[in-house]
């Protein structure tokens, strides 16, 4: 359904600002994910402390978006696609903030791994997994920009790849821990990091579901393909 401008141009401005802010938040989270991925894949500290401090910006931007959404609801009483847009932006902002938390947590754990001496930790699959989740975030935000439900569903279904990598990585890390008992601390942190990226993938699917709702006004089917078998197949 095509949208023409509102009679009240200030309402258009509010919605435009909210959309822009959530895009900025997504860009910031993407930057966080890329930064931590770089440190992980090179096993060198590439500004991890700066990244950890930057998470406050993520939190602040999320709060601003939620606050603006409350104001728009109170002052403009949005309905139909406008109401969906406000609610979806708020929800996406909350999801992005959680993704940001995982990036920060991963940075903290990476610091421990680096301090422990990371010689024996298997990071190859982890890098691939991190890049994949980052791609999911970029793609799902493009789907949001274009209100493209089809693209959103493609991202949602793509989470299977992340799950499969997680399962494989989980096995590799367990094996590595068995073979290098002196590196147990680094490997345990690596397991948590892998889980973080698996959750980031899940969160990207959560954004995809919001985009679907924004486009169609209905919720996507509950069934989603999953392939994370770490809990019983490690």
């Amino acid at each position: 359904m095509e949208s023409s401008p509102h009679t009240s141009s200030a309402f258009d401005q509010d919605l435009y600002e909210m959309s822009e802010k959530v895009r900025s938040l997504a860009n910031l989270v993407e930057r966080q994910l890329k930064a931590v991925t770089q440190s992980l894949s090179t096993l060198e500290d590439k500004g991890l402390d700066k990244l950890i401090r930057r998470d406050k910006k993520v939190d602040k931007l999320e709060s601003e978006i939620i606050e603006q959404g409350v104001q728009v609801i109170a002052l403009r009483a949005p309905l139909a696609e406008d109401l969906r847009r406000v609610l979806v932006i708020q929800k996406i902002a909350t999801i992005l903030e959680r993704m940001g938390d995982y990036a920060r947590n991963t940075a903290n754990r990476t610091k421990v791994i680096l301090a422990e001496g990371p010689e024996a930790v298997p990071v190859t699959n982890l890098q691939q997994m991190a890049e994949l989740t980052c791609e999911m975030l970029v793609d799902v935000m493009a789907a949001f920009d274009n209100v493209d439900a089809e693209m959103a569903i493609k991202v949602r279904n793509g989470d299977v790849k992340v799950d499969k990598l997680h399962t494989k990585l989980h096995r590799d890390v367990v094996k590595s821990a068995q073979n290098n008992p002196d590196q147990i601390v680094a490997n345990v942190h690596l397991l948590f990091i892998a889980k973080n990226f698996e959750r980031i993938g899940d969160y990207a699917t959560g954004i995809a579901e919001q985009v679907y709702f924004l486009a169609n006004g209905t919720f996507v089917d509950e069934f989603r393909p999953k392939a994370d078998k770490t809990s019983w197949n490690a």
Binding site: M1, E2, S3, S4, P5, H6, T7, S8, F11, P78, L79, A80, E81, D82, L83, R84, N216, G217, T218
Partner: peptide, 19 residues
């Protein structure tokens, strides 16, 4: 009607795009 109207005119009216 107020969350997911199906016709474009309904949507435009209830979202304040004309009227």
């Amino acid at each position: 009607i107020f969350t997911n109207p199906h016709h474009e005119l309904t949507n435009s009216y209830i979202t304040g795009r004309f009227g």
